[in-house]
Design a protein around this nucleic acid. Structure first.
Length: 559
RNA sequence: GGGCCCGUAGCUCAGUCGGUCAGAGCAGGGGACUCAUAAUCCCUUGGUCCCUGGUUCGAGUCCAGGCGGGCCUACCA
């Protein structure tokens, strides 16, 4: 039973610097999940956005002599533009500086305060402005020491004593642990669950404010305007603001509750604690259910994370991490999306280099699916007048198998055709399982296996050879029809990852850009006699010239 | 310092309850084919499953310790 709704979120990204390719990874993964669900006809809401408050944005704005709001407008637009060019189909883009969100957070803070979940306390410690965090006396000895996290970038830390507002994390942690153990919130992959339970055994109350003399770019505490809200309550409740939590309009509130019951958060492993311990206790304090599911992925590793490879391929480009913009410029939108989605398996850290993605894109997209489409469509133009030959002919061929002398060969061919059909149907089957297990690799693995099966089939049937004798044309047509119909089914598995290219392919078949999963997931959709478009060059092989132009400091394929 | 995770062929990774588990893809080598994007198909070379002990009839698989890498975290539970 597919869920009746799907609400998927990415973290909101902090407005500083150029977007990291890891942020694009998370966002593209969320987009792929969203597109699969939409294809299955499941109502889907996909949210991403930017996190805009805090000292860093404030200081960056001061340094440039502009207002924090202007700075946020600028950076937020950078993210929005990049995501758009990656084909990200988010339904909403939230900014924490929007009035709708500031209102939600103020209401949350007000209620927490009224319930006694927030209290004042003072503490003293070493503080790094750039990290916006306090460090222990053990990590740092004197004011004036360098920041232990980023000694060069962040420079010196300072001694600070502050009175602040704290949230009673410890009050709700045991209940949160019970609920996670009961499975109210699913943590994927499952091994992360015990990590979360471990974190919950040792929690501290959380500082949720900063004095406005130091940080003014934030949401004021409604009950103590001398302070602004510090990061996590502000950031995490974005997931509820967008759907209408605590809205004045009852219909909006009902809508929010309906979406929230099916929420899936995508996050990187670095913010696991914030999205489980903090977010979970905030929600419990508000009397709200936990998110349905959290999907935690690892990192894309740069060359520092890679073991130095002893066996660099001769002349191949150096293994440096592609940036978000370079990747798009070199391989194009859909291939870039495919490279990201296939980079990380099992949500485990994975190296991400030009060499690796080049090998994968050439093997799986160019030589695999792309080449298969090209050869089949071309042969239909050459041998069948550019019209879909029809699958019924195929069954005739299989039926008269026993009448022929060359029985074994034809039986084998029939079995091969059946194998092609089965392999093709495995793709929509994997797509149907995706909402349950969020396993894109199962789907893409089925696509690769399908391509392989088609290659074997064509190699066995040799339609290019058979077509030389007109008497063989029915069989040639049946072979090509089987292959093309299989490719159509495989494209359903690729659609969420490479939507533009699959739309091009579908146009060749005379189908609309967006697939309708029912009935398209069934075998035998294409009608005999339907005219086909010209073969599309779906996925060209890795382009050295483009690479050299976009990434001048790494020499590709020289030699 | 503490918690957790990872360490399997040159590269990226599968290995479910301990019993063909020593595998796949890519890369490398040889052959075939020629419809196709120097493509595809067949065959093939590679491994101390990080190390050391232990449990067991039997361990990538479980246990202990160590080494290496990672994430989080802490004014020593």
């Amino acid at each position: 039973m597919p869920p009746e709704r799907f609400y998927v979120t990415t973290p909101i990204y902090y407005v500083s610097g150029t977007p990291h390719v890891g942020s694009v990874y998370t966002t593209v993964m969320a987009d792929v999940f969203a597109r699969f669900h939409r294809m299955l006809g499941i109502p889907t809401f996909f949210l991403t956005g930017t996190d805009e408050h805090g000292e860093k944005a404030q200081l960056a704005a001061e340094a440039r002599g502009i207002s924090p709001a202007a700075l946020c407008d600028e950076y937020s637009a950078v993210f929005r533009s990049l995501f758009a060019r990656y084909g990200v189909s988010n339904d909403d883009f939230i900014r924490t500086t929007e009035p709708r969100h500031e209102r939600t957070v103020a209401r949350v803070l007000g209620r927490m305060h009224a319930q006694g979940d927030l209290y004042r306390a003072s503490y003293e410690g070493f503080y790094c402005t750039r990290c916006e965090t306090f460090f222990t006396d053990q990590a740092v000895r004197d004011a004036g020491d360098a920041c232990p996290e980023q000694p060069v970038l962040h420079g010196k830390i300072q001694r600070l004593s502050e009175t602040n507002w704290f949230f009673r994390t410890s009050k709700y942690a045991p209940e949160l642990a019970r609920r996670i153990e009961a499975g109210e919130m699913e943590i994927v992959p499952a091994r992360r669950r015990q990590e979360v339970l471990g974190l919950l055994r040792d929690v501290q109350d959380l500082c949720v404010s900063r004095h406005r003399s130091r940080v003014s770019w934030g949401i004021p505490l409604p009950f103590d305007p001398e302070y602004v809200c510090y990061v996590w309550i502000d950031a995490l409740f974005n997931y509820r603001t967008a759907t209408g939590y605590l809205d004045d309009d009852a219909a909006r509130r009902a809508d929010d509750a309906a979406w929230w019951a099916h929420a899936t958060h995508l996050i990187g492993k670095d913010i696991l604690k914030h999205h489980t311990v903090l977010w979970g206790t905030f929600l419990l304090a508000m009397g709200e259910p936990l998110p349905r599911r959290e999907f935690i992925h690892g990192w894309l590793l740069d060359e520092r994370g890679l073991k130095v490879s002893k066996t660099q391929l001769a002349g191949a480009p150096a293994a440096r991490t592609p940036g978000a913009e370079e990747l798009l410029a070199v391989v194009g939108r859909d291939a870039a999306r495919y490279a990201l989605v296939t980079a990380m398996r099992g949500a485990e850290d994975a190296p991400f280099s030009w060499n690796l993605l080049r090998e994968r894109l050439d093997a799986e997209l160019a030589n695999g699916f792309g080449n298969s489409v090209n050869r089949v469509v071309r042969m239909i133009h050459q041998s069948c007048g550019g019209r879909f030959p029809g699958l019924d002919v195929n069954s005739d061929v299989n039926a008269d198998v026993n009448a022929d002398v060359n029985v074994r060969a034809k039986v084998d061919a029939g079995a091969r055709a059946a194998a092609v059909r089965e392999a093709a149907l495995a793709v929509p089957a994997a797509v149907r399982r995706l909402p349950d297990i969020l396993d894109v690799h199962e789907v893409l693995g089925a696509v690769r296996a399908g391509v392989q099966e088609i290659s074997l089939f064509l190699d066995e049937e040799k339609p290019w050879k058979a077509a030389k004798d007109p008497a063989n044309l029915p069989r040639v047509g049946a072979t090509l029809a089987t292959a093309l119909e299989a490719l159509r089914l495989l494209s359903l598995g690729l659609h969420a990852v490479c939507p533009e290219k699959m739309a091009e392919f579908r146009a060749v078949l005379g189908l609309g850009a967006e697939p309708c999963f029912e009935p398209e997931s069934r075998w035998g959709l294409l009608a005999a006699g339907a005219p086909l478009g010209q073969p599309p060059g779906l996925f060209p092989r890795f382009d050295d010239a483009k690479f050299a132009a976009a990434v001048p400091d790494a020499a590709p394929g020289a030699g």
